[in-house]
Measured scan of single mutants.
Amino acid sequence: SDFTIRIGDRTLHLKNVSEEILKILEELLRRGIDFEELRKIVEELIK
């Protein structure tokens, strides 16, 4: 499924993301992860 994360004025667009990855990202966001850290993790996950 497609997913968009907005943190402040920044946006991260994800396409064809599995439910498992979404759950991980949601947990990281709940813990207050930094946007740049989140972006790096996402890039690793979707390689």
Rank of each mutant, 00 (worst) to 15 (best):
S1P: 13
S1E: 13
S1Q: 14
S1I: 14
S1N: 14
S1A: 08
S1W: 15
S1Y: 15
D2L: 00
D2Q: 01
D2A: 01
D2T: 01
D2H: 02
D2E: 07
D2K: 00
D2V: 01
F3R: 04
F3S: 03
F3W: 03
F3M: 14
F3N: 02
F3H: 09
F3K: 05
F3Q: 04
F3I: 15
F3E: 03
F3L: 14
T4I: 15
T4F: 13
T4S: 05
T4A: 04
T4Y: 11
T4N: 06
T4M: 09
T4P: 02
I5V: 10
I5C: 07
I5Q: 00
I5Y: 02
I5R: 00
I5E: 00
I5P: 00
R6M: 15
R6N: 15
R6A: 15
R6T: 15
R6Y: 10
R6C: 15
R6G: 07
R6E: 15
R6W: 10
R6P: 05
R6F: 10
I7N: 01
I7V: 09
I7Y: 06
I7H: 01
I7C: 14
I7K: 00
G8S: 01
G8W: 02
G8P: 01
G8C: 02
G8I: 00
G8V: 01
G8K: 03
G8D: 04
G8M: 01
G8N: 04
G8E: 03
D9P: 02
D9C: 04
D9I: 02
D9G: 09
D9Q: 05
D9F: 03
D9R: 03
D9Y: 03
R10I: 11
R10L: 10
R10H: 13
R10M: 13
R10E: 14
R10A: 10
R10C: 14
R10P: 00
R10Y: 13
R10K: 14
R10S: 11
T11V: 14
T11G: 01
T11W: 05
T11F: 08
T11E: 13
T11A: 04
T11K: 03
T11N: 04
T11H: 08
T11D: 04
T11M: 05
L12K: 00
L12I: 12
L12W: 06
L12P: 00
L12V: 06
L12E: 00
L12M: 12
L12F: 11
L12G: 00
L12Y: 13
H13N: 04
H13W: 01
H13Y: 11
H13G: 01
H13D: 04
H13F: 05
H13C: 10
H13K: 06
H13M: 06
L14S: 00
L14Q: 00
L14R: 00
L14F: 07
L14I: 10
L14H: 00
L14K: 00
L14V: 09
K15S: 12
K15F: 08
K15N: 08
K15Q: 08
K15P: 07
K15A: 07
K15Y: 12
N16C: 02
N16E: 05
N16V: 03
N16H: 06
N16M: 03
N16Q: 05
N16A: 04
N16F: 03
N16W: 02
N16I: 04
N16P: 01
V17R: 00
V17G: 03
V17W: 01
V17I: 10
V17Q: 02
V17M: 04
V17Y: 01
V17A: 07
V17F: 02
S18M: 01
S18V: 02
S18W: 01
S18F: 01
S18H: 04
S18A: 02
S18P: 14
S18G: 06
S18T: 08
S18N: 10
E19D: 13
E19A: 14
E19V: 12
E19R: 09
E19Y: 09
E19P: 15
E19I: 12
E19W: 07
E19T: 14
E19S: 12
E20D: 14
E20T: 04
E20I: 04
E20G: 08
E20Y: 03
E20W: 03
E20S: 06
E20Q: 08
E20K: 07
E20A: 06
E20H: 07
I21G: 10
I21D: 15
I21M: 15
I21Y: 09
I21K: 09
I21N: 15
I21W: 10
I21A: 12
I21C: 02
I21E: 15
L22A: 13
L22I: 15
L22V: 15
L22R: 15
L22W: 07
L22N: 04
L22S: 11
L22Y: 08
K23F: 14
K23E: 11
K23Q: 13
K23I: 13
K23S: 13
K23P: 12
K23L: 11
K23H: 13
K23T: 12
K23M: 14
K23A: 14
K23C: 09
I24S: 11
I24T: 14
I24Q: 14
I24Y: 13
I24R: 11
I24D: 12
I24N: 11
I24A: 13
I24W: 05
I24M: 13
L25W: 02
L25M: 04
L25K: 00
L25V: 15
L25A: 11
L25I: 15
L25P: 00
E26R: 10
E26K: 12
E26A: 06
E26T: 10
E26H: 10
E26S: 07
E26Q: 11
E26Y: 08
E26N: 11
E26F: 06
E26L: 11
E27I: 09
E27W: 02
E27D: 13
E27P: 06
E27L: 05
E27F: 04
E27H: 07
E27Q: 08
E27N: 09
E27C: 10
E27A: 07
E27M: 06
E27Y: 03
E27V: 09
E27G: 09
L28K: 07
L28M: 10
L28W: 05
L28Y: 11
L28A: 10
L29P: 02
L29T: 08
L29C: 08
L29Q: 06
L29V: 11
L29Y: 03
L29E: 04
L29I: 14
L29F: 04
L29A: 07
L29D: 03
R30K: 12
R30P: 01
R30I: 11
R30T: 13
R30A: 13
R30W: 05
R30E: 12
R30M: 10
R30Y: 05
R30C: 11
R30N: 13
R30D: 11
R31Y: 06
R31M: 10
R31S: 08
R31Q: 13
R31E: 10
R31H: 08
R31K: 14
R31V: 10
R31I: 09
R31D: 09
G32H: 08
G32L: 02
G32M: 03
G32I: 03
G32N: 12
G32C: 09
G32S: 06
G32R: 00
G32A: 06
G32E: 13
I33L: 12
I33C: 08
I33A: 11
I33G: 08
I33D: 08
I33K: 09
I33R: 06
I33Y: 12
I33E: 09
I33Q: 07
D34P: 10
D34A: 11
D34V: 07
D34K: 09
D34C: 01
D34W: 01
D34T: 13
D34S: 12
D34G: 15
F35S: 06
F35D: 05
F35W: 05
F35M: 07
F35T: 06
F35L: 07
F35Y: 12
E36G: 03
E36I: 04
E36H: 07
E36W: 06
E36S: 05
E36T: 06
E36C: 06
E36K: 05
E36R: 04
E36F: 06
E36N: 08
E36A: 05
E36Q: 07
E36Y: 05
E37N: 08
E37G: 09
E37C: 03
E37S: 12
E37L: 04
E37T: 12
E37D: 14
E37R: 05
E37M: 05
E37F: 03
E37A: 07
E37V: 07
L38E: 01
L38K: 01
L38M: 13
L38N: 03
L38H: 01
L38R: 00
L38Q: 01
L38T: 04
R39D: 08
R39N: 13
R39K: 15
R39V: 15
R39C: 08
R39W: 07
R39S: 14
R39L: 15
K40S: 13
K40L: 14
K40N: 11
K40T: 13
K40E: 14
K40I: 13
K40V: 12
K40R: 13
K40M: 12
K40G: 13
K40H: 14
I41F: 08
I41V: 11
I41M: 09
I41S: 06
I41A: 09
I41P: 01
I41G: 03
I41H: 09
I41R: 09
I41K: 08
I41Y: 05
I41E: 12
I41W: 04
V42R: 01
V42C: 07
V42P: 00
V42L: 09
V42W: 03
V42H: 05
E43F: 09
E43G: 09
E43W: 06
E43N: 10
E43P: 07
E43L: 09
E43K: 08
E43V: 07
E43T: 09
E43R: 07
E44Q: 11
E44S: 10
E44W: 04
E44R: 07
E44A: 11
E44F: 06
E44K: 07
E44H: 10
E44P: 06
E44Y: 05
E44C: 10
E44L: 07
L45A: 09
L45I: 09
L45V: 07
L45Y: 07
L45Q: 07
L45F: 06
I46V: 13
I46H: 12
I46E: 14
I46Q: 15
I46W: 05
I46R: 08
K47D: 11
K47N: 14
K47F: 12
K47M: 13
K47P: 15
K47R: 09
